[in-house]
Amino acid sequence: MDTLCTLARKEFDQALRWRGLWLLTLVATYLAYAGWGQSSGLTEPRSLIVTVLGPDLTLASLHVPIVMLFSLAALMLSYRSVVGARASGSFKLTAVQPHSRAEILLATVFGRTAAVWTAAGVSVTFAIGVGILRYGFPDAVSLVLTLSATGLYLFTIVCFGTAISAAVERRGTAGTIVTGYYLGMNSLWLTVTHPALYAQLTGVNVLYSEPPQSVPLFFSRRVVPRGAYDVLLNTAIGTGNATGYVESVLVDSEAMGADIAHIHLVQLVFDGSLPLVLEPLFSVAILLLWALIPLSIAYIRFSRKDLVR
């Protein structure tokens, strides 16, 4: 355990000194402060959002920076952590020390997660500090839930990136996979699971159909880490059990109401009790599974291969 902590601290120090992390933190902080949380430039809805969310607007402002930038930082810090070190040879200095392979993987995850949390913590502290000055204190429970969900989300991404890094043999392969992951999670998956495509494939127009809705479609949007985080953050802030940015969920639901079954807002389009997989807490399980399954597979591969050649 001591040696795990020591290695994790070394990984943390190394990651924290990566300039890219602080560059992304700077941009993220600007976004949290100046941009999206205050309505993405949508002048009119802005007052609506302020009215509805009040001081919790500050928490909502973290959504885009976390999803777009800190998830990117988490991936960049993790995807080369093992395969890059093996290629450069710095891994040898770790490998010759009395660490087990499980310890190496876990310490990499813990150390690099702590670095991403630290950078995100700086950004969040600044954004919340400014938010408090402008809008007052956010709800304490919402704050704790938001921070917990964010911490879990970033941990999941570091686990995924580290798992890829430990499982593959080449840096290029790891880079391709995580690039696909990032683009897939933040863009492609939303297209693939869009109701329009679903309507084309199934003949069911979800947007205008009555309850009960398609559980697979709704589940598919939250089965990925990005969707699961959306659900947890929307739940924490109280905008609903929904995938999508807090702000867009709020704006769309207000603008369109229940006439159109908004694909994000589960409670508007399902009767009575929800299936388990659409319960907000299930998103915690989804994030944990995205962390643990890749890491377990990576551990099996990592423990069977030679550490150096």
Partner: peptide
């Protein structure tokens, strides 16, 4: 081998001493 990126010589030793 290669050294650990971004860490000082002293930090390299601290790591091994702790381990």
């Amino acid at each position: 081998f290669d050294v650990f990126p971004r860490l000082t010589g002293k930090r390299h030793l601290e790591y091994v001493i702790d381990v």
